[in-house]
Design a protein around this nucleic acid. Structure first.
Length: 150
DNA sequence: GCCAACGTTGGC
DNA sequence: GCCAACGTTGGC
């Protein structure tokens, strides 16, 4: 799950001290992931995009899935969507809870070189989804990097 | 700041 | 329902 750290970083999630709304996704593929694929208890990587460097910074847990994103109905929110019907909300959100912050960022370039992550979606050229699935093999390959928990 | 990739919109 | 134009993402 990607977020620009200038907007919302893993430190912001830590500071939340508990489950936090993962809001503002306005892409139908991501919406469908939130609705159909993500389950309570699932683990996720926290990825900083548009960062220096961009990469994985830690992990979190999904604590609530696929419910209407309240920001779509909030005219004061930058994510307000006046075309979303109140009775059939167009956009969904999930709640996430901080699990772990790594000792360093794992940059995108390192992910591309990491054995077991050759097919990892986030490393694919042109891949712009803010939420995408990770295989167990990829998960284990990242967590197997020495020294992340130093 | 550039630009490739690709999702979305809207005319027809 | 096609597809060109447009907008956004996000690495570099």
């Amino acid at each position: 799950m990607k977020s620009e750290p200038d907007v919302y970083s893993i430190d912001d999630l830590i500071a939340a001290g508990g489950p936090a709304l993962w809001e503002g996704c306005r892409n139908y593929t991501v919406r469908n992931f939130m609705r159909d694929t993500m389950k309570v208890g699932d683990l996720a990587f926290f990825y900083h995009s548009n960062a220096e460097p961009s990469g994985i910074v830690g992990t979190m847990k999904i604590t609530r899935t696929g419910y209407p994103d309240p920001t779509q109905f909030d005219p004061t929110s930058e994510y307000f969507d006046p075309k979303s019907p109140v009775d059939t909300p167009r956009w969904l959100a999930v709640d996430v809870e901080f699990v772990e912050k790594f000792s360093r960022t794992i940059p995108l370039a390192e992910l591309k070189e990491l054995p077991g992550c050759e097919e990892m979606l986030v490393t694919r050229r042109g891949q712009r989804l803010s939420v995408m699935p990770v295989t167990e093999q990829e998960w284990n390959a990242v967590l197997g990097i020495p020294g992340l928990r130093a």
